[in-house]
């Protein structure tokens, strides 16, 4: 059932295993979000099903909107056709997002979990485009990105806490999501090793392992509270050991 007041997600894949696997993966970081899989054909073959996609949209829709992520071409065509058959009210709150299915799905799930509105969840999914250069993938926040030189200057005049990562598995998906969720509760821009702390994909792509130095910075002192909160979370090992 769709969670009232929250954006729902629908993952459309040619493969039922990919769609349900992605729900499983995203669920790790979005335990209560509405995540629906529509993979494969009605009879379990590789392909996409108009009926499964249509039913999935309905299932994911609490009235707050649905973000649909697709894999290969015909998944998008099927989703677009399903939209054509919705009534105008329902169609107006469904977005088919052009983003990598897995990376975009996980980023959108974290935003949906946090209760973000439809357009913010869409932006989170879109932030996964070109995730290889994820340091600049902070579409969820202001989109403002410091280059390395500016960052050093900002750190000097701003506020920085440096800690060592204690998690045995490093900053993997779950703790990265915890960090992003906490950072998103502050209006100020905070960076982690120069990357926007509100960008899940940016943080995950830092690839920080146990013992890595983590510099949590704000350009100015107004971000001090946010930096301290994030540092405390990181020092606690994100509830892991």
């Amino acid at each position: 059932m769709a969670v009232p007041g929250k954006v729902g997600l629908l993952f459309v894949s040619h493969s039922a295993a990919i769609a349900t696997g992605l729900v499983e993966l995203a669920r790790q970081m979005a335990p209560t979000a509405t995540l629906v899989a529509a993979g494969g054909t009605d009879d379990g073959r590789i392909g996409t099903s108009f009926d499964l996609v249509s039913a999935g949209i309905t299932e994911a829709d609490s009235g707050s909107g649905v973000v649909v992520l697709c894999d290969l071409g015909s998944a998008i065509l099927t989703a677009e056709t399903a939209l054509d058959f919705l009534d105008d009210d329902a169609r107006a709150r469904v977005r088919i997002v052009d983003a990598p299915l897995v990376e975009g799905g996980v980023a959108a799930a974290v935003a949906a979990e946090a209760g973000d509105p439809l357009e913010v969840v869409v932006a989170a999914a879109e932030s996964a485009r070109g995730a290889a250069t994820a340091a600049s993938a902070g579409a969820v926040s202001s989109g403002e990105t410091a280059d390395d030189g500016a960052n050093i200057g900002a750190a000097a005049s701003g506020y920085t806490r440096s800690i060592r990562l204690v998690n045995s598995d490093g900053l993997h998906a779950r703790p990265a999501a915890e960090l992003v969720k906490l950072a998103s509760t502050f209006p100020q821009k905070v960076t982690v090793n120069g990357t926007d702390a509100k960008s899940l994909l940016g943080i995950m792509s830092l690839g920080l392992t146990k013992g890595a130095q983590v510099d949590i910075s704000s350009r100015d002192l107004s971000g001090r509270e946010a930096v301290d909160a994030l540092a405390a979370l990181a020092e606690s090992g994100f509830g892991e050991s």
């Binding site: 054909t41 009605d42 073959r45 392909g47 996409t48 099903s49 108009f50 009926d51 071409g73 015909s74 065509l77 099927t78 677009e80 056709t81 054509d84």
Partner: peptide
């Protein structure tokens, strides 16, 4: 649209 499964379903259906 309901039975073809591949891209041909939505394309021919449309």
């Amino acid at each position: 649209i309901s039975t073809v499964g591949g891209a041909a379903g939505p394309l021919y259906g449309t």
